[in-house]
Amino acid sequence: MKKISILGSTGSIGTQAIDVLKNLKMEVLGLTAHSNIELLEQQIYELQPLVVAVTDHEKALELRRRLRTNLVETKVVSGIEGLIEVATLDEVDIVLTSIVGMVGLRPTVAAIEAGKHIALANKETLVTAGELIMPLAKQHGVMIYPVDSEHSAIFQCLQGNNAKEVEKIILTASGGPFRGKTINELRNVTLSDALNHPNWSMGKKITIDSATLMNKGLEVIEAKWLFDLDIKDLEVVVHPQSIIHSMVLYQDGSYMAQLGQPDMRVPIQYALTYPKRIKNNFQRLDFTGLKDLTFEKPDQGTFQCLQLAFDALARKGTQPTVLNAANEEAVNLFLNNQCSFLDIPEIILQSMDAHRNILEPTLDDILEVENWTRNFVKGRWSE
């Protein structure tokens, strides 16, 4: 029986992972949340973990009081140190890192150094520190299993094949809610418009990233590190139906594609059970009901975030860190109605241009650059 810790158990991926675990013989030893202690408390009663972490210190104290009142023995810790404790529990075999944001980086590094396998749903880990993370995982004999549907698809298409025979990786994108719109049409889009994704149910931040195509840009950077590829080997194709989750082109001209319903529970389960495939009752595709599978080039002139991600990857060093942190701040401004939808790529571009790039950064460099970027954006845009 595998034993697991879930970092970000109250978020979209975390809650779906718990749904997946009900069908698997896995024991949950650790959970973490930022501040949603109401849902976390329910998960504690259901799963009976040894330790939970709440990054918000006051919320952690409140949860501790609640559990004590109900005679629950689960240990409650807080802050980044608490996240690291949950990620490095001795008995844990695999850590699902589904925290959104840079806060997931240090616990993931700690888990790898403790020899824990990683089911990776935190984009920022590889986007900002892929150059450090992949060698570190190899050093400690740790496997990194992708949870994103696109990377899971690629991972599955590579099974049983020689990675040296890959010609190209093709990541599919739904195009988001604004596919086909012009820049003029995007000038007055609302927050509710941007949060209305046509295919996937996700958290707010990732949904906005999908609308700007930044989500796909971040996935391109992740794919570079996960699968040891060059920029020229990475391509994005818009596939509005979200049935083909990604493809691999081999040098003999053969394409391998992974298909399925737009359901995150499938890649979550595969990451947790690899190399086994466990029977479940998730919805299957009805091919006779599929009218069209269409494909088109992404409009990188209108959706500039995707091009910015390719630019950051080409510049290397700390540019992807700036891209990621500036995007996080810009999305937060948009979610709080402090900037427009089209301001998001402008904020990112200004941050990247203002930054003095550091090639071959250390982890401390990355964390310092992330802090610089956030201060830069706040100084320019938060007034």
Results as ranks from 00 to 15, higher is better:
Thr207Trp: 03
Val237Glu: 09
Ser351Gly: 06
Leu259Trp: 10
His355Ala: 05
Gln156Tyr: 02
Val76Ile: 13
His117Ile: 01
Gly260Asp: 10
Ile133Glu: 03
Gly176Asn: 04
Leu191Pro: 09
Lys279Asp: 10
Leu272Glu: 01
Ile243Met: 12
Ser242Thr: 08
Val236Pro: 09
Thr182Trp: 03
Tyr255Val: 13
Pro177Ala: 14
Ile99Met: 12
Ile183Asp: 00
Thr128Val: 14
Val237Gly: 06
Ser5Asn: 02
Thr172Asp: 06
Asn122Asp: 09
Asn196Glu: 09
Ile118Tyr: 02
Val331Lys: 01
Ile347Phe: 12
Arg315Tyr: 12
Lys297Asp: 10
Glu27Phe: 02
Trp225Thr: 02
Gln156Lys: 06
Met134Glu: 04
Glu368His: 11
Ile13Leu: 05
Gly317Asn: 07
Glu296Gly: 12
Thr97Asn: 13
Leu335Met: 14
Asp230Pro: 00
Leu158Phe: 03
Ile344Glu: 00
Asp353Tyr: 08
Gln269Cys: 01
Lys224Gly: 10
Gln43Asp: 05
Val248Ala: 07
Asn184Pro: 01
Glu73Arg: 15
His34Gln: 10
Met256Leu: 12
Ile206Phe: 09
Arg106Met: 14
Ile18Tyr: 13
Asn199Trp: 05
Gln48Val: 09
Ala194Ile: 11
Asn332Ser: 12
Gly14Cys: 04
Val369Ile: 15
Ser5Ile: 06
Asn371Ile: 15
Ala211Lys: 04
Ser12Asn: 04
Thr190Phe: 10
Ser5Pro: 02
Ile99His: 00
Val51Arg: 13
Ala309Tyr: 04
Pro262Asn: 09
Leu67Cys: 11
Leu308Glu: 07
Lys168Tyr: 10
Asn371Lys: 15
Val76Met: 03
Phe282Gly: 01
Leu171Ile: 12
Ser149Gln: 05
Asp252Gln: 03
Tyr274Asn: 06
Ala137Leu: 14
Ile278Leu: 13
Arg187Glu: 13
Ser5Trp: 08
Lys279Asn: 11
Thr128Met: 15
Asp353Trp: 02
Lys2Glu: 10
Ile358Cys: 02
Val127Thr: 08
Gln261Arg: 14
Ala153Leu: 06
Thr182Val: 08
Gln16Met: 06
Thr318Glu: 01
Lys164Arg: 11
